Simulated assay, not measured.
Amino acid sequence: MNNYGKYFEEFSVGDKIDHALTKTILESDNNLFCLLTMNHHPVHIDEEYCKKQQHGRILVVGTLVFSLIVGISVADISGKAIANLDYESIQHKNPVFIGDTLRAESEILHMKESMTKKDRGIIYVETRAYNQKNQLVLIFRRNVLIKKRMGTNDK
């Protein structure tokens, strides 16, 4: 896994990354996530209930959408991360439904070197997710602590 991800020096402010992975959300994905996270709200699991609600069909759990998009971005953003320091400004812009296919893109907004350790730096990145109709469904920002090429054993 030494070649997985990028070092801090390989990023630049303004970089735009179209993540190659996409994911079609299956009913089983949503159901399993509901079970694992104990989210049993009927809007996520009860088709008959949903028919009487605003969207008329099951909504995918927002935290599943968020988790999938973070995962889609790992190879390009946090593959060499030491830690995700924070997630902020998580915005669900449009609903996601079973059968939707999601893609993501990220932009490097800011970079700074660590004040205490020379072998790492922090990138501030915004990630946006879209469905198959190119509708924006999610935006979030995060600070990621990333290894520098120097001072590591990775080659």
Rank of each mutant, 00 (worst) to 15 (best):
Ala20Thr: 12
Asp18Lys: 13
Ile123Lys: 02
His110Trp: 06
Ile123Leu: 09
Leu21Asp: 04
Ile77Met: 08
Leu136Phe: 04
Gly121Pro: 09
His55Val: 07
Ile98Tyr: 05
Phe140Gly: 04
Thr116Trp: 00
Tyr49Arg: 05
Asn94Gln: 09
Ala104Leu: 08
Asn134Cys: 09
Ile90Gly: 02
Ile139Thr: 14
Gln132Glu: 12
Lys117Cys: 00
Glu47Val: 07
Glu88Ile: 01
His110Ser: 06
Lys118Asp: 15
Lys93Met: 09
Ser73Pro: 03
Val70Arg: 00
Asn131Ala: 01
Gly121Lys: 04
Leu26Asn: 11
Glu27Phe: 02
Leu35Glu: 14
Lys155Thr: 13
Gln135Phe: 13
Ile72Gly: 02
Ala129Thr: 08
His55Cys: 00
Asp86Gly: 05
Lys133Thr: 15
Thr24Asn: 08
Glu88Tyr: 03
Lys148Cys: 14
Ile108Ser: 06
Glu107Tyr: 01
Leu64Val: 10
Lys155Leu: 14
Asp15Ala: 09
Asn3Arg: 12
Glu48Thr: 12
His44Ile: 10
Leu32Tyr: 03
Ile82Asn: 09
Leu59Trp: 00
Arg142Phe: 01
Glu48His: 01
Ile69Glu: 02
Lys112Asp: 12
Leu85Tyr: 08
Gln53Phe: 00
Asp46Gln: 10
His55Ile: 00
Val60Thr: 09
Ile77Ala: 04
Phe140Ser: 11
Lys155Met: 11
Glu47Asp: 13
Phe8Asp: 06
Val137Arg: 04
Asn39Pro: 00
Asn30Trp: 07
Tyr87Met: 03
Glu107Lys: 13
Arg141Phe: 03
Asn31Ile: 15
Val137Asn: 02
Ile123Ala: 12
Gly71Ile: 05
Ser106Arg: 03
Leu32Val: 14
Ala104Phe: 03
Phe97Thr: 12
Ile146Ser: 08
Asn134Tyr: 11
Ile146His: 06
Gly79Ile: 13
Ile25Leu: 07
Gly56Pro: 03
Lys117Asp: 07
Met38Thr: 12
Leu59Asn: 11
Asp18Ser: 14
Tyr4Lys: 12
Gly5Leu: 09
Asn94Glu: 08
Ile90Asn: 04
His92Ile: 02
Lys133Cys: 14
Gly99Tyr: 04
Arg149Leu: 11
Ile98Val: 12
Leu145Asp: 06
Ala104Ser: 15
Arg142Trp: 01
Gly62Ser: 15
Pro42Ala: 08
Ile72Asp: 01
Leu21Glu: 03
Leu145Thr: 07
Leu136Ser: 14
Phe66Asp: 07
Ile58Met: 01
Ser28Trp: 00
Tyr130Ala: 05
His19Lys: 10
Ile25Pro: 02
Tyr124Val: 15
Ile45Lys: 10
Ser89Gly: 08
Ala129Tyr: 08
Asp29Met: 03
Gly14Val: 10
Thr101Met: 03
Asp86His: 02
Ala104Asp: 03
Ile25Ala: 02
Gln135Gly: 00
Glu105Lys: 14
Leu26Tyr: 13
Ile25Glu: 02
Asp46Ile: 06
Gly121Thr: 07
Asn84Lys: 00
Met150Lys: 15
Arg103Lys: 15
Val144Lys: 05
Lys155Glu: 12
Gly5Lys: 08
Ala81Ser: 13
Ser73Phe: 01
Phe97Cys: 13
His40Asn: 14
Pro42Asp: 06
Asn134Lys: 15
Ser73Thr: 12
